[in-house]
Amino acid sequence: MVVGRRASRMVVVAVALGALIGGCTDARPPVASPAPTGSPTTTPTPMSSAAPPSTPDPATPPTRPAAMAEPSAEGAAAAAGYFMSLYAYANATGELSEWDTMSAPGCTFCAGVREDVESRRTAGLRNIGEVHVRSAAGTEVDAGRWYSARLHVVIGESEDVKDDGSIVEVHPPEDHEIDVVMTWTDASWIVDEVGPASGPTT
């Protein structure tokens, strides 16, 4: 969770996310536009039911919420929250298999996180810090296919730590409203992009 890199990446991702939201193609729909068959369905999702719990031990693999099993606004909120739990887990452990499983090939944010994790791993470092999903609301864009979720995410103070336990650098906490664009395919969630919230925030 390197703050300088992350801030720069968020600007790049904002452009990519804007392309997804503002332009309709066969591959990805505009997140803010209604589905052809009706208006998007937005479901505010309490932490207790769909979004995963915060990660007091980021080195422990997060548990998939049951709500992720269905293509719905609630499922999208749960999947987005789970993905952010994987963010903390990947940074703390260097384990990227589940992160990669949920990441679309063209996801700029997903690839950037992978690059940061691998760079630290090569340097013999891990980044230890908690991620708290304060709220999550899913939106159905095209039933059974395309969804988005608005998350309020708080990233606690984190530390770059060597294998011997010594601390190399401390990063300050961050507070973000983010949008997560997702596709439901083959009975699973794929994250197409993550970026700063594109409209009014909670």
Rank of each mutant, 00 (worst) to 15 (best):
Y147A: 02
A79C: 09
M1V: 12
G23M: 13
G38Y: 06
S135G: 04
E70S: 15
G4I: 14
D164R: 08
A27M: 11
T45R: 06
I21G: 03
A14M: 11
A66S: 08
R6H: 14
A197W: 03
T63C: 04
I167Y: 07
T55K: 10
S135L: 05
W99N: 03
A16H: 13
P46D: 07
M68V: 13
P44M: 02
V113Q: 12
C24T: 13
A80C: 08
G199E: 09
M182L: 13
V194W: 10
V154L: 10
W146S: 14
G23K: 12
M47T: 15
A123L: 09
V168C: 15
S166D: 10
V12Q: 11
E140C: 02
D100Y: 01
M47K: 08
L20E: 09
V3A: 12
G138H: 03
D142K: 10
L17R: 13
R134V: 02
E74C: 06
I178A: 11
A104S: 01
V13C: 15
P36C: 05
D160C: 11
R134Y: 01
V141S: 02
R6K: 10
P105H: 03
V15K: 14
E70A: 14
A149S: 15
D57G: 12
S97L: 01
M102H: 04
H171G: 06
N127A: 03
S166C: 08
A137I: 02
T45N: 06
P40E: 03
S135V: 01
R5M: 12
V181P: 02
S48N: 12
G4T: 15
L20C: 05
E193F: 05
A197K: 07
T37Q: 13
T60A: 15
S158P: 02
W99R: 02
G195K: 11
M102L: 05
M47C: 09
V141Y: 00
F109V: 00
A137P: 03
V191N: 07
